[in-house]
Design a protein around this nucleic acid. Sequence first.
DNA 1: TCTTTCCCATAGACGGTCTATGGAATACAT
DNA 2: ATGTATTCCATAGACCGTCTATGGGAAAGA
Lengths: 114, 114
Amino acid sequence: MGKKRNGREDLLPGTLDMLILKTLSRQVMHGYGIADHIRQVSADVLKVEEGSLYPALQRLQLQGLIKSEWRQSANNRRARYYRLTPGGRRALGESESSFSRLIEASARVMKPAT
Amino acid sequence: MGKKRNGREDLLPGTLDMLILKTLSRQVMHGYGIADHIRQVSADVLKVEEGSLYPALQRLQLQGLIKSEWRQSANNRRARYYRLTPGGRRALGESESSFSRLIEASARVMKPAT
DNA sequence: TCTTTCCCATAGACGGTCTATGGAATACAT
DNA sequence: ATGTATTCCATAGACCGTCTATGGGAAAGA
């Protein structure tokens, strides 16, 4: 049924790709692990739903920003491991600076000099 | 035609309502003025397009967070002036804290303690 | 008169996120 | 052995916010 009045956001729209790329910039990981990592590091504030995660991973792969291969996970399960490409690293850098630009600009609007 | 490869974002998705409410929390304004204010305070980083602005104003009004009335602008033109309702002020507060929660959480992911 | 600026407004495309759902394999408890 | 929780992948469809594009009108200034 339907609709849940969205009083709680899971993450800032538009930041998922950046969060994924950042996570992968530290180590090769599988999807589930990425989501888990983001959730943990953010102290349970950012929740990456699987229905957001996998489409995002596909987008990123189509754009050539990440690559993947099947492997065996630490728990002996089959998992698709992702790693950053050089292009992905570049894109991450651009994402980060664009993001902080926008954050700073928003901050200026939210608490302007008297 | 069509599509511009979006290397540049106009604002952080999901923040427009908050920016509008914040602007209106300082003074009653018309739509054009709100967009202009946000652009100026943000030093031209945040661009509020009219196609985003007016739908947003309508949403906010439908939710009872702002109210409007026709008046004469400083330049003698007819303009719709918006002001915050008490509910709008409350919503602004919630928006702000939710926003900073998400920002801080994202920051933790983006630059984790070694 | 023409152009610029101010101001409102809508339609349609686009794209990202969420809900919901499904499946399968391993670990663990009973 | 049986059932349950956990790990892991994946897709479909709804939903909604933002952008592009477009239209119009009224005042100011050249």
